[in-house]
Amino acid sequence: MSVKFENVSFLYLPKTPFEHLALDGIDLEILDGTFTAIIGHTGSGKSTLVQHINALLRPSKGKVLVGDYVIAANEKKVNKLQELRKYAGLVFQFPEYQLFEETVLKDVAFGPKNFKDSEQVALEKAKKALSLVGIEEALFDKSPFELSGGQKRRVAIAGIIALEPQILVLDEPTAGLDPQGAKEMMSLFKTINERGTTVIMITHDMDNVLKYCDRAVVMKDGKIVKIEQPSELFKDEELLKEISLEEPHIISFAKKLIASGMNLELNDIKDFDSFIAQIGKARSVK
């Protein structure tokens, strides 16, 4: 049980002037319960990749295995497509654009109802998901369009969380949020991950990759160039340069300190606090 890509290629708009190989021979395995980051520049194929996980896109070549479900090239229909989409929930970029119901609660319950939950069960799940993302009850009966930008984002994400997926796929979930909102959002995903859900997240924010993710999948031109632990990834100067990836500020600063002779352990730096602790330790040893 995991997500597995076997030699997957995806041809965008074949036989048209816009034809373009968006994925090129992808081999990838993502284990259950992990927190994986997908990184790379716009146009590197990240979104195309994750849309294969719940069969919004079908491979032109190769196959994708998600849990017990198989999405293979050249097969017209995906077996048990609805079940698959409940198993692997996908949150799009700027998901607040998918809100449409009269009330916040109804909008979140929309997903579970589509997956054949009864009205009551759907509402229960919706309430649970809303409280998890930190939307208070007073807002349940409001129109989603009356909420602030950050609240809309939470409601939209709750709409997927309410499906209780085994795999949660997120496409730049913190884009456009203010720093505090982004922080809360990330710790929410960490909580969900710790409860056993596999989380796969596309992001440009390397601080988040370093702090929260077990592994980073680096993409370029439709190919995977590297799969690595974040702390190892940011040591690979050559790779960083090749894909012009900007390392977290704490890492670049730590590297400068190391270059000037400070004895820091890069692997132990995960976030600002551990970074400061490391400096403190190095200084006191001296």
């Binding site: 400068k256 300190l257 000037s260 002779g261 400070m262 400096i279 200084r283």
Partner: peptide
């Protein structure tokens, strides 16, 4: 740069 210099 100054911060690095002072820390080291």
């Amino acid at each position: 740069e100054e911060a690095v210099r002072r820390l080291c």
